[in-house]
Write a protein that binds this DNA or RNA. Structure first.
Length: 781
DNA sequence: AGTGCAACTCTTTTT
DNA sequence: GAGTTGCACT
């Protein structure tokens, strides 16, 4: 067996030999398409691509072309350095990023198809499936989500309220992000509650009994396996000769340890490691991400070469300047200055609005008006801090018939009917899955109540002495115990077991038929479950209206399974796919290619849009709650991320009032707005009292006469000239709605003059003239 | 066992 | 304000 040094020597020796074969060094000798894609790189990017021989840390500012660097590097290694694509691993954080990276790498170099380009978690899942036994889990495991964790925890530890269970579950996740087991001495740093250790331990034992894993396990378990199992470790070191990590600033401790173990750096494996990150874009501290990983990188990986990418090719100088003004308020950053390669553009706009309804209208107006001028909807992205904020925009856009796509909404997979079908599938995959079992054994109702379920689960957990150990199949347990139960429960269980057998047969039958070419799609199984389990009928009979929707959802789930074969492997792949990427995809079929993007700030990581509106720039919303110190800095980085998503145009909106918890609250502006920089943005709308930019407030002057901004701090005390201009009976013309007449004018609670206009086209509409001056004019007969 | 009503919480952010 | 949880009643 090779030892570490030998591997290293062999690797580089092979490289040298191949280089010699091709007639020595120098790009002149490279294939034309390689020269082609190298030639478009700037000097720093080029250095990063061709670098080898030591670990590499790339500090890549926003929009500096880091994806290009990674994908080019993959292509270059394969085409020019003759690295086996099979030995290349590139990990990202989101499926979207992984897909994009894969696509771009393959388009540069078709052989990149065979490289492993995955998310951290899907790589962990792959690792665990191939090394299930060493990890002490079932090779058929499915992944429990947060919800399942809470359910399992309340079973493992009796007497917890759901809330307590949720809190502990969260802490367990965090512990796993730091790769801490229940017996870790430093576990107290995560949670000081003396019960926690025992709770975590009980949970973990119970989870192992089910054969399943949770999200944290996908990273932690492989790390533990690598540490304790030399054979597997060696095998991995030989397999993966090149490892690249994207968005490295958001890696957590467990991921860092995973990388360390996988690379075999301590054992001189000679694996080439390259990580790419930006400390200014670290936004997942709350989930255990450690910016320290960037700093520590050079300690753990000696002789690390550092390359900075500071040329921004995405945004205009104006946008970058605002971004820099904000982020420079953070202490403890590595510090870098982006240069705007694109040059100058439009000045960003900061709009003060009365409330969230008008915020939504403001966005809709902007989008509609530009759309009339030929700007596609897909140019636009609405950014917000919390998912809940999407609602207001959704209803406004729906109303106005503006197509939109909400990114990252988990809603679909959280629907009851979907979770039900998935639970049947999960139980088919892993018959020890007690969460799935409990969910579906009595759904639809079969007369199997809570006590019967508990009995079956207990019997499976503690198989009787003679029957061999660990026969933890809940179906087995059901089969065996069934006859001894009361009539009702007995019949119910019998029916359930029968159905499950039927479904199982569907999988094996098609597996057997595989050779004959009669391979079914997995959608057949999903449909069969919906119909034959009685779920479809159960859900449709519940509510006439909702039932139809639910049936559609179930059908949609079946449709999405059409890409997978109806085999055991296909089933596992499908479940993995859903668990590890619950965000996008499914909407693909119905997605309108030209639509506005509604997205949380966190979800924008790695994305870019031509025109960005950052909404809800209010203290308490963004930054959230009372954040201070390092947490406030993280919020500020999030703000930086949002701003730097914009290529051409940036808007920020802030509301004076907002409905929260059903109550209307007066909002203070976000402190970040004061940092944008005097004169760096154009302010429109009603400037709040005391609003002053950093430094020279006067130069933020309100030139936006179009919008009628007046900067008065107490509008309710001033007589509004617009009141006379748009008095009752005045004929007007509105850009969007045409001719009409003011039928009413009144002052709202917040001192705004509001008019109601009856349009000739039939509709009537209410406006605040002060915000409509750009679109509204008085018509003289 | 299943339905209906009242009280309660919730707003971070995600793989 | 909405969605969910828990309790009581049928």
């Amino acid at each position: 067996m090779l030892c570490g040094m030998e591997i290293e020597d062999e690797f580089f020796a092979a490289m040298e030999a191949r280089q010699a074969e091709t007639g020595g060094a120098g790009e002149q000798e490279l294939p034309p398409q390689v020269q082609q894609y190298l030639s478009v790189l700037n000097p720093e990017q080029y250095d990063a691509v061709v670098h080898e021989g030591s670990p590499l840390l790339i500090l890549a500012g926003a929009g500096s072309g880091k994806t290009r660097v990674i994908t080019t590097k993959i292509a270059y290694l394969i085409a020019a350095r003759h690295v086996d694509p099979y030995s290349i691993l590139a990990v990202t954080f989101t499926k979207k990023a992984a897909n994009e990276m894969h696509e771009r790498a393959v388009s540069l170099e078709p052989r990149a198809e065979h490289a492993q380009i995955r998310t951290f978690h899907s790589f962990g899942a792959w690792f665990l499936r191939t090394n299930a036994q060493a990890a002490g889990i079932s090779p058929n495991f499915t992944v429990y989500d947060d919800d399942d964790m809470v359910t399992l925890l309340s079973k493992a530890v009796v007497g917890l309220t759901r809330k307590e269970a949720a809190r502990f579950a969260h802490k367990i996740s965090l512990a796993k992000d730091y790769c801490l087991l229940p017996d870790a001495p430093t576990l107290d740093d995560i949670e000081s509650d003396p019960q926690f250790r025992a709770v975590y331990d009980a949970y973990q034992k119970r989870l192992r009994e089910t054969g399943n894993v949770d999200f944290g396990d996908l990273i932690m378990l492989p790390t533990l396996v690598l540490r304790s199992n030399e054979t597997i470790r060696r095998r991995m070191h030989q397999r993966f000769r090149v490892i690249m990590v994207d968005e490295y600033q958001d890696s957590n401790v467990a991921q860092f340890l995973f990388l360390q173990a996988l690379s075999g750096i301590d054992e001189g494996s000679g694996t080439y490691v390259c990580v790419v990150g930006d400390d200014d874009q670290s936004i997942y501290k709350f989930r255990g991400a450690e910016v320290k990983n960037i700093l520590n990188f050079r300690k753990i990986f000696p002789d690390t070469k550092l390359i900075r990418l500071e040329r921004n090719y995405r945004s205009t100088a104006e946008i970058l300047s605002v971004a820099d003004n904000v982020v420079r308020n953070n202490e403890g950053r590595l510090g870098k200055t982006l240069s705007a390669e694109r040059g100058s553009g439009k000045i960003p706009v900061l709009a003060f609005l009365p409330n969230q309804d008008e915020e939504a209208q403001f966005c809709a107006d902007l989008i509609e008006k530009t759309h009339e001028r030929g700007v596609p909807y897909m140019d636009w992205a609405i950014l917000y801090r919390t998912n809940a904020q999407s609602l207001g925009f959704e209803s406004e856009f729906l109303h106005r018939k503006i197509p939109y796509t909400v990114v990252g909404s988990l809603k679909f997979y959280e629907r009851e009917e979907i979770k039900d079908v998935l639970a049947y599938l999960a139980l088919l995959a892993n018959p020890r899955d007690e969460i799935a079992f409990a969910r579906v054994v009595n759904k639809p109702a079969r007369g199997v109540g809570g006590s019967t379920q508990a009995k079956l689960i207990e019997a499976a957990r503690l198989p009787d002495a003679g029957s061999g150990e660990q026969a933890y199949s809940l179906l087995e347990s059901s089969r065996r115990l069934g006859p001894s139960l009361s009539k009702k429960a007995r019949e119910g269980i019998a029916g359930f077991v029968e159905k499950m057998d039927e479904f199982t047969a569907l999988i094996s039958r098609t597996s057997a038929d595989y050779d004959t070419g009669v391979e079914d799609k997995l959608s057949v199984l999903v449909e069969a479950i919906s119909e034959k389990s009685g779920l479809l009928e159960y859900h449709t009979s519940q509510d006439e209206v909702q039932g139809t929707q639910r049936a559609q959802n179930m059908q949609e789930l079946a449709n999405s399974a059409v890409l997978y074969p109806c085999t055991r492997e296909g089933l596992l792949e499908f479940l993995d796919h859903i668990e590890l990427d619950r965000t996008l995809d499914l909407a693909d079929e119905e997605a309108n290619p030209d639509s506005v993007t509604l997205i949380t700030l966190h979800n924008t990581k790695g994305l870019e849009f031509n025109r960005v509106i950052m909404t809800g720039m209010e203290r308490g919303i963004f930054p959230r709650a009372e954040k201070s110190g390092s947490e406030l800095e993280e919020e500020r980085r999030l703000c930086y991320v949002g701003i730097t998503r914009a290529k051409d145009e940036l808007y920020l909106t802030s509301c004076a009032m907002r409905r929260m918890y059903g109550r209307t609250e007066y909002m203070e502006i976000s402190p970040f707005l004061l940092e944008l920089g005097a004169g760096a943005v154009k302010v429109i709308g009603h400037k709040p009292y005391g609003f002053r930019m950093d430094e020279d407030a006067d130069s933020t002057a309100l030139h936006g006469g179009d919008f009628g901004a007046n900067g008065l701090s107490h509008p309710e005390l001033s007589s509004d000239p617009l009141r006379a201009k748009y008095a009752r009976g005045v004929r007007i013309y509105h850009d969007d709605y045409g001719y009409g007449m003011v039928t009413a004018g009144r002052t709202s609670d917040d001192g705004e003059y509001v008019i109601t206009v009856q349009f000739e086209s039939g509709g009537s509409k209410r406006f605040i003239p002060r915000y409509q001056e750009h679109a509204l004019m008085v018509v003289k007969d």
